[in-house]
């Protein structure tokens, strides 16, 4: 069997080049490839196109790559928590494509599933529809949206095995499974790398066929954006 296991983020990402199109999993700071982002920062690769639902916060997640000016273009659905992002965007220093979240998810899914385009109602009658083919089905209007693919997909899973099979935890799954399918090279970082046979086949979320490289990440911070708790009187 081809060895998919890499020692760490730096070795797994070593061939990422300037101008790469990179998908990064996560929703907010939940389920983001923390080690992969740090490696991109250290490698100083630039002119990146990043496809990710959000853009991190000012000092964490993709936010650190924005601050270091390594990102040329950002493709996201919501970027509200990042002042540096907003500044660069309003100053015209950063290219941004904002896409409805469901359309973003489906475009990535389509990219991995070999479907070049599909119709969706999201954005009809809005500026998102500009320049797109419109077609009516059963009296309702839909936009034609194209697939998205990436040179590298960086995904984060809870557990993974030597075959690249992945299991995600809680809502940290989000965009990771689709992105895993849509990268020419998909690099999975996992909290726990386990031997073959440790993961139940019925429990696998991402089958290993989609994953070219896997490494066990370290020092996960797992920052929380909105810590909300129920206060009990005890």
């Amino acid at each position: 069997m081809i060895n998919k296991i890499y020692a760490d983020a730096r070795t797994a990402l070593s061939d990422v080049y300037d101008g790469s199109i990179i998908m990064l999993g996560g929703f907010g700071l939940c389920g983001i490839p923390e080690n992969g982002i740090t490696a991109l920062l250290e490698m100083k690769v630039k002119n990146l196109t990043c496809i990710s639902n959000n853009a991190g916060i000012d000092n964490f997640g993709i936010g650190v790559l924005l601050k270091s000016r390594q990102v040329k273009k950002m493709i996201s659905s919501y970027v509200g928590e990042n002042e540096e992002f907003e500044r660069q965007l309003l100053a015209g220093e950063l290219e941004v494509e904002l896409i409805p979240q469901g359309t973003l998810a489906e475009r990535i899914r389509a990219g991995g599933a070999g479907i070049p385009a599909f119709y969706t109602p999201a954005g009809f009658g809005t500026e998102v529809a500009r320049g797109k083919e419109i077609r009516s089905f059963d009296g309702k209007n839909y936009l034609l949206e194209n697939w998205l693919k990436a040179d590298f997909s960086l995904v984060k899973a809870w557990k993974g095995d030597e075959a690249g099979n992945l299991i995600y935890h809680g809502t940290a799954r989000n965009f990771n499974p689709m992105m895993a399918t849509a990268g020419k090279i998909t690099i999975a970082e996992v909290e726990e790398l386990v031997p073959l046979g440790s993961l139940g086949p019925e429990e696998i979320h991402t089958p290993g066929i989609y994953v070219q490289r896997v490494f066990q990440g370290k020092n996960y911070e797992k920052r929380i954006e909105q810590r909300t708790i129920t206060v009990t009187n005890q």
Partner: peptide, 10 residues
């Protein structure tokens, strides 16, 4: 203000 539409359009 540019925050994005998130899932609202869908």
């Amino acid at each position: 203000m540019v925050k994005g539409m998130g899932g609202a359009m869908d």
